[in-house]
């Protein structure tokens, strides 16, 4: 019962819907709370950075709420970190949304927008909204990661116009949207972050949260 008080904090920076992320974590048996308080983040056992919306607004909100240093400190201290959707993109050096906006620069690389034309010269609908498959990158194993026991080619739910292009070998899964392959989840030390929404991906998505909580020993006993 030592981890009865393990506390997972979801960072609320005014963007996106925290309801479903909260419900998913409750569902798998984690003590969860949302917060915008930098001090509280530093006292957490693990943090979750969700988010839907614009990169620039997100960075501005994180700045205004004084959250950037606490997030960086938490990650540096080795605390488990889970980023979802915009919470993945914000980790990167910069985004090309509305000119260039600097990100948290924890992962080297860029955030780019899908082009509106696919290889056949047809319209590529952007945002990508819907279920798509995740697969391994060069056969790299998913054992001991949150994708443990998820089968190659499993469907997850995506909603996004921008994708990440890491300049370091952090990619854990890739996805192909209408002819365009991109990295759909990353792992770097204590960081796991995914472009898809596990909280919207049914039972398999909940499994990703469950794996993450189990690997990091965050579940209530």
């Amino acid at each position: 019962m030592t981890n009865l008080s393990k506390k997972v904090l979801i960072i609320d920076y005014g963007l996106g819907n925290l309801f479903s992320v909260t419900q998913a974590l409750i569902n798998i048996g984690v003590n969860v709370k949302t917060t915008s308080n930098p001090d509280e983040i530093e006292s957490a056992d693990a943090i979750v950075l969700p988010g839907v919306g614009a990169f620039k607004d997100a960075m501005n909100n994180l700045k205004d709420l004084n959250l950037i240093d606490s997030i960086k400190k938490s990650i540096d201290s080795g605390k488990p970190f889970l980023g979802i959707c915009l919470g993945l993109q914000l980790l990167f050096s910069e985004s090309e949304e509305f000119g260039v906006t600097k990100g948290l620069d924890i992962v080297k690389g860029k955030v780019k927008r899908f082009s509106n034309n696919n290889q056949e010269g047809e319209i590529r609908k952007v945002p990508q909204i819907g279920w798509n498959q995740i697969s391994k990158i060069n056969g790299k194993s998913w054992d001991y990661t949150p994708l443990n026991d998820i089968k190659e080619g499993e469907f997850m739910y995506f909603v996004h116009s921008f994708y990440v292009e890491p300049e370091e070998p952090v990619g854990l899964s890739q996805t192909n949207y209408d002819g365009h392959s991109y990295v759909s989840s990353i792992q770097k030390g204590n960081i796991f972050a995914c472009q898809f929404h596990p909280e919207k991906s049914g039972h398999k998505g909940l499994k990703v949260y469950k794996n993450w909580a189990e690997i990091n020993n965050l579940k209530r006993n």
Binding site: L15, N17, V52, G53, A54, P127, V159, H160, S161
Partner: peptide
Amino acid sequence: SLKFGSST
């Protein structure tokens, strides 16, 4: 869409 994100 500015407030909640286009995809919402």
